[in-house]
Design a protein around this nucleic acid. Structure first.
Lengths: 188, 188
DNA sequence: GTCTATACCCCGATAGAC
DNA sequence: GTCTATCGGGGTATAGAC
């Protein structure tokens, strides 16, 4: 039983990986061409402009990651949910040289059109909203330390995850994500 | 009384700004050429390769920022130190479209040589070390909430600052840095 | 759909006159 | 030190044959 992968899907998947590795200005149609095995003009057939390609990459990435986040069992205690979230964030590192696609595009945002900015913002907000609920639950269960409003703490926590995956790659270590999780766990 | 600025300094200053705006792959010798008013070949005279230029930009930026950090009065209470640090981090935003130069280069790190990676790592570590001391002091003074070891908490906190300046620019708001500061302040 | 061919511009970098 | 001129290559994108 073979899994059929269309050329279009291959292009999109490699684009996602390349953006997570080198960012918007760091990859080209030529890179994709050699990875997929079609000419650059064929890529333009599916994605007329680079911005079209990147927007679809954001949407594919968002859909996948948010599915994984929302698949975390809602009946779990808050600290267990956070552990799963940390693990999931660690998976974005791949072989250790990738960061979150939306974190990367946030760094490149001044080179990008408004529709991509909105897509990246939506991804950030979805993560922050989910974390806010977990923090509120964790405060009630007294397993997570929340200072100030959960919404504010969630924005800070999500920023910490984004920053820590950046630092994890910079220092060639996966440990920095755990620093973030530890920083909100109540000391016993 | 005129402040003399050499061509070399002008190039370096504009390079710093451009990297904070668009990143390593997002600016060119041509951009600098039109900003400074000399030909690109003259820029090569001062900085033979782009990597030479970027390394010096990191060093200049690091020197300036770390001077500002270490200029924070050591006799202040920990929460006051953190307030000053937050304000200083907010200044990197500039007109609202810049992020920390070393955070940006951390995103671009897979396109950069090892010597630049080391310089960026050193900047991260210097900030984390300073924050670790502040957190230890704040824990003792019971003004800052520290979970786990101060070193680990400092890495998480610095990641949060890096991530929040990214989000501040993404959402066109300066408020996100304050979320980070609030997240470590003890609720009274 | 995929290709060849090409347009048009930008890139970093260098040689050599002044 | 700064310039003109240029090299060799890479960038996105398009036209048109198959």
């Amino acid at each position: 039983m073979e899994t059929t992968t269309t050329v279009r899907e291959q292009i999109l998947d490699h684009a996602v990986t390349l953006i997570m590795l080198r960012g918007y200005n760091g990859f080209s149609y030529r890179d994709l061409s050699s990875l997929v095995g079609v000419k650059t003009s064929s890529i333009h057939y599916y994605f007329p402009s680079k911005d079209d390609l990147v927007l679809e990459a954001v949407n594919e990435y968002s859909k996948e990651v948010l599915n994984a986040v929302h698949a975390i069992d809602p009946s779990l205690p808050a600290d267990a949910k956070l552990s799963k979230y940390t693990k999931m964030f660690g998976r974005t590192l791949g072989d250790g040289n990738q960061i979150c696609l939306c974190g990367m595009l946030a760094a490149d945002i001044e080179s990008l059109p408004e529709n991509i900015r909105h897509a990246v913002q939506a991804f950030f907000k979805a993560n922050e909203n989910w974390l806010a609920k977990v923090l509120a639950q964790g405060a009630q269960e007294k397993t997570l330390a929340v200072n100030g409003k959960p919404e504010s703490a969630a924005r800070a926590l999500y920023a910490a995850f984004q920053g820590s995956v950046l630092a994890s790659r910079l220092f060639h270590t996966r440990a920095r994500l755990e620093d973030v999780e530890a920083s909100v766990r109540t000391t016993r």
